[in-house]
């Protein structure tokens, strides 16, 4: 048995990394989604719109820039799926959830930021995505994506 493991050490390492990547990755993802959904429903009352001018009836008392960003890393399992996807083509399903999580987390952080500033709504909302570690498919490189959400937090004059 020991000999078998030693002779096939490359495969054993690969298997361990895959299992670790899958278990840890899906646990983290599940937990993250639970938190995202909880906070989304908590902050659903705060409007975030992408129009440039605040179409509100009251006067604007204060307006500031608010940002929120999140960086989410891939795991070994997701990367392996994506590499195989490169051969066959089609939707890279394993990366979809990463991008989705990064975007929603960034929006949530931006909203939290706006709430802290006692804003009533966020206008001119924008969302940017960028990759960190462009050579993420190379050996020993860590790939992750960053989503940045920003907008103008507006506080209305209370009458």
């Amino acid at each position: 048995m020991t000999d078998f493991l030693i002779n096939n050490s490359g495969l054993v390492t690969f298997g361990v990394l895959m299992i670790l990547g899958y278990i840890a990755g899906s646990m983290a993802e599940k937990k993250h989604y639970a938190s995202i959904k909880k906070r989304e429903s908590e902050m659903v009352e705060m409007p975030v719109v992408n129009i440039k001018k605040a179409c509100v009836d009251s006067d604007v008392q204060k307006s500031t820039l608010v940002t929120g960003s999140a960086v989410i890393s891939i795991d070994y399992f997701k990367r392996f799926l994506a590499i195989l996807r490169n051969l066959f083509g089609g939707r890279v399903r394993s990366y979809e959830s990463l991008v989705d999580r990064a975007r929603r987390e960034a929006i949530l952080r931006m909203k939290e930021n706006a709430l802290k500033k006692n804003a009533d709504l966020v206008i001119n909302f924008r969302l940017e995505t960028s990759a960190i570690g462009k050579s993420a498919n190379k050996k020993g490189q860590v790939g992750s994506i960053e989503a940045l959400a920003y907008g103008t937090a507006v506080t209305l004059r209370k009458v």
Partner: peptide, 15 residues
């Protein structure tokens, strides 16, 4: 924005 299929199923197909 995310596909519903199970990742292990995708792995099995691809591998």
């Amino acid at each position: 924005n995310i596909s519903a299929s199970h990742p292990l199923k995708e792995l099995a197909w691809l591998v």
